[in-house]
């Protein structure tokens, strides 16, 4: 259900400029260019070696084109938490915030370049709020996409390039967590380990020791997987562990593409494997081009760490 009051309030913003054109405080200069190239590891001589640059069609030192916005950003003033909204975009964001759409995330960025900037050029930027979408349901929460366009000109009024930015202003579906440095999200995601309970924990513990086990009924000898507390053939609750040879063939398989899950590094192949002992197991197939995986393919198991979790993985039998 769209927010009518908000939509009415933001409508006048569409088509408006952020404010008067912004003029770069400093002309394009070698010091800032060199700092940028150092930070990006950019060794392109057209940005720092006048002699080499002169031999290219650029004809002399030019600024990296994606540096365009850096010429007009206000620098350290951006970090001032008490800075009042200074342009229409910031006023628009403040309006969204008042209505509970406090989240913001940039989703798309597009640069187009007409000409490379040369040392001594001075940039002027004119930014416009181009459009605001209808309300959208997204993974982050409901929100609106705001598109802004900035036009960059040089001192002669020639178009240098343009930048289109799309951000989502959204109502966070989860209340923001008061994260401290101790419990913030880990730097690297891991796979989700199997929850372990009374009836399955032993199997994963064996895997931790490097052994692929099959549950075997102590009374009638029937093998079963996944483990269960009672034998379906004779109803005995006595069972033992039998090591598997780890060899078998692919019964069916899929390639996981979407949705991506952190820690899993999709696309990955998952197969249902017929173990030679007669039970089946779901596990990843690795080191095999996806197009070569096929039903009936002979595979063998090894136990390895994938995404921080010890798992059985299968490779094509050589």
């Amino acid at each position: 259900m769209p927010n009518a009051a908000l939509e009415e309030a933001f409508a006048p913003f569409v088509g408006q400029d952020f404010g008067p054109p912004e003029i770069a405080r400093d002309p394009v200069n070698e010091a800032m260019i060199r700092q940028w190239c150092d930070a990006m590891g950019d060794a392109n001589p057209i940005h720092w070696d006048a002699e080499a640059a002169a031999k290219t069609h650029h004809g002399g030192i030019v600024a990296p084109p994606t540096m365009l916005q850096a010429w007009i950003l206000p620098g350290v003033r951006l970090a001032d938490p008490d800075r009042p909204p200074s342009d229409k975009q910031e006023e628009l964001h403040a309006l969204f915030n008042q209505h509970g759409y406090t989240g913001v995330v940039a989703t798309d960025c597009e640069f187009e370049f007409e000409r490379y900037l040369r040392v001594g050029d001075r940039v002027t930027a004119k930014a416009t709020i181009e459009s605001i979408s209808e309300e959208k349901a997204t993974a982050l929460g409901i929100g609106y996409f705001v598109v802004t366009r900035t036009r960059f000109e040089n001192q002669d009024g020639e178009l240098v390039g343009s930048m289109v930015f799309r951000v989502l202003k959204f109502k966070p579906s989860q209340p923001p967590q008061q994260a401290s440095s101790g419990d913030a999200a880990p730097a690297k995601p891991q796979r989700i380990p199997a929850p372990r309970g009374h009836d399955n924990g032993w199997w994963w513990e064996a895997l931790d020791r490097g052994e692929l086990m099959i549950q075997k009924c102590s009374q009638c000898g029937t093998l079963r997987h996944p483990p269960r507390p009672m034998c379906h053939a004779c109803r005995s609750v006595d069972w033992e562990e039998q090591p598997s040879a780890g060899t078998g063939s692919v019964h069916s398989y899929v390639i996981m593409h979407h949705p991506p899950v952190p820690g899993y590094d999709f696309p990955v192949a998952v197969a249902l494997v017929d173990l030679d002992e007669g039970t089946r197991i779901v596990a990843n197939v690795v080191d095999c081009p996806f197009e070569d995986i096929h039903i009936g393919m002979k595979v063998e198991c090894s136990i390895e760490e994938l995404g921080g979790v010890k798992l059985p993985v299968f490779r094509a039998t050589s």
Binding site: R196, D199, N200, M256, Y264, V282, L306, L311
Partner: peptide
């Protein structure tokens, strides 16, 4: 029934 899903989640077969 997290035990049930435990056989599928670690490999990524979770949807």
């Amino acid at each position: 029934d997290s035990i049930h899903w435990s056989w599928y989640i670690p490999s990524g077969l979770m949807t």
